[in-house]
């Protein structure tokens, strides 16, 4: 579905990604874990076209999308919810949602919009509010909802639980699992991510140091202590 091969991305002399191989299988959640600075955000930025890789390939549904512009990648069905959601605080909730998937047919957009508002009822009550007035959890819902508006087949998410109460995190992760999309989930909250994921990778200093089913990662004490901090 989504496959990353031998991916390397550098910021100047700093190698943020150093030959990363991973795959996100269709219809399930794949977690990417690791400490701050492990390269998780860079991985997602490279996949979605925000950062240019120095080497390696990104393939999505069998198509090589390496180096494509972000707007082209999202139109092809791969949506990126950036760190902190990337909600545009100056716009209303309704306008933020409207921005997602503007290239799609009106009927499709309307249908998705109804689905998103059913999925996240707090958004339906706040459509006319400035997005800047939302709580952290509501912002994350809005960001995910906006990504869903593009009708994606795969979603990549950068720490959706950051700064959120555990209850809210659990709710968002549950929604993600129920959608049965292909999800690549980057998290520092390893326990929460592994509880919904089928497969997990652990990144450290830009390399994959573990690649195993989520249940195995949860059971592996050595790995948990060394990289996941719980």
């Amino acid at each position: 579905m989504l496959r990353v091969q031998d991916l390397a991305t550098a910021y100047g002399p700093v190698r943020a990604l150093d030959g990363v191989d991973l795959a996100a299988e269709a219809g399930v959640i794949t977690a990417v874990l690791g400490a701050n600075g492990a390269g998780k955000t860079t991985l997602l930025r490279t996949v979605s076209g925000l950062a240019a890789p120095n080497a390696g390939t990104v393939t999505f549904d069998g198509e090589d999308i390496t180096g494509w512009a972000p707007d082209r990648i999202v139109r092809r069905g791969l949506a990126h919810v950036p760190e902190n959601g990337g909600v545009i605080t100056e716009l209303t909730v309704a306008d933020n949602l409207r921005l997602g998937g503007l290239w799609r047919a009106r009927a499709d957009r309307e249908r998705t919009r109804r689905e998103v508002l059913e999925l996240f009822p707090p958004l339906a009550e706040r459509l006319d509010r400035q997005a800047g007035t939302l709580s952290g959890g509501e912002r994350q819902m809005l960001a995910i909802g906006r990504a869903l508006m593009s009708g994606p087949r795969a979603v990549i998410l950068d720490e959706p639980s950051l700064g959120l109460a555990p209850m809210v995190t659990a709710r968002i992760l549950r929604v993600l699992r129920e959608l049965a999309l292909t999800v690549l989930l980057v998290e520092q909250n390893a326990r929460g991510a592994l509880s919904v994921a089928t497969h997990g990778y652990v990144l450290s200093l830009g390399r994959v140091v573990a690649d195993a089913p989520a249940a195995d990662l949860l059971d592996n004490d050595r790995l948990r202590h060394a990289y996941l901090g719980f």
Partner: peptide, 24 residues
Amino acid sequence: TTLGLRMRAAAFKPEVASLVGVKV
């Protein structure tokens, strides 16, 4: 208009706008 919305989004947060499909 949606063109206006896209222009505003591109102005406020260019990177985010590109992620939702706006040609910034």
